[in-house]
């Protein structure tokens, strides 16, 4: 009976009797209990991620078609990107996924000191990723690889400049889209870090950390596909 009490802390909306008030995320009035609230939160994120798959799927479809049509020019353009930096960034992002997974684990176990440290590590790794990305972008700018603004294809004779420009358009479009997702995720982690430090989460209520984790892992998965498709086109 004790466990049942833990799961269903109160049928009265908003009321959580005989609980320490400091560690409670208030139960929203439309839900019967925290269990339902948590189920709803994770399901909502999964549904959102389904739309995200299609969101990235649109430009990837276009990329697939032009990659097939202009494969020589796309390969030549892809070779301009720095594989070491791309691979490093992949490892950095995978590392941030690891810290997130560990943070969710720690939250489930109620180790909130670890949670705040791991979330902080995630934020640091995310910022490092964006920093390396910015470094790459500045190299691209110096080399004149910015489509529509500053673009040349003189680095390799015989490459059709318009097609190489198309490759770089997709490179920037997809990586910027990804970077925007990273920024949203970083903002979410910053808020959650504050809330963790203020003791808003508990063993029973840590769904926001889990939900943000799902989002972050998805952003990681997107990069896992973008890295070989953009950086590693070879003949």
């Amino acid at each position: 009976m004790l466990s049942a009490n833990l799961v269903k802390p109160g049928v009265l909306p908003g009321a959580l009797p005989h609980e320490a008030p400091a560690t409670q995320e208030p139960l929203a009035s439309q839900f019967a209990d925290l269990y339902q609230q948590r189920e709803v939160a994770t399901l909502g994120m999964w549904v959102f991620l389904a739309t995200e798959i299609l969101f990235f799927g649109g430009p990837l479809t276009a990329y697939a078609i032009y990659g097939g049509r202009f494969s020589d020019d796309f390969v030549a353009a892809s070779e301009r990107l720095s594989v070491p930096l791309g691979a490093l960034n992949t490892v950095v992002l995978l590392g941030s996924s690891l810290t997130v997974a560990l943070a969710v684990r720690a939250a489930r176990l109620g180790q909130f000191r670890s949670v705040s440290l791991l979330v902080l590590a995630t934020i640091v790794l995310g910022v490092v990723f964006l920093g390396i990305k910015a470094l790459e972008y500045s190299h691209d700018y110096a080399e004149g690889l910015i489509p529509g603004i500053r673009f040349t294809a003189e680095w390799r004779p015989g490459v059709e400049a318009r097609h190489a420009e198309l490759f770089f358009f997709f490179y920037f479009f997809l990586t910027l889209l990804h970077a925007v997702h990273m920024l949203v995720g970083l903002a979410a982690w910053a808020v959650l870090l504050l809330r963790t430090l203020r003791g808003r989460f508990s063993v029973r209520w840590n769904a926001p950390i889990e939900v943000a984790g799902l989002y972050w892992h998805f952003v990681d998965v997107v990069w896992v596909f973008l890295f070989p498709l953009l950086y590693l086109l070879r003949h």
């Binding site: 466990s3 833990l6 799961v7 269903k8 948590r38 690891l98 489930r108 063993v203």
Partner: peptide
């Protein structure tokens, strides 16, 4: 209804292996 809290917690080593 069962307690949902630490329903399924893997060890940190499992996550490190996956990484």
């Amino acid at each position: 209804m069962e307690a949902q809290a630490p329903s399924h917690v893997q060890s940190s080593w499992a996550y490190l292996t996956i990484f």
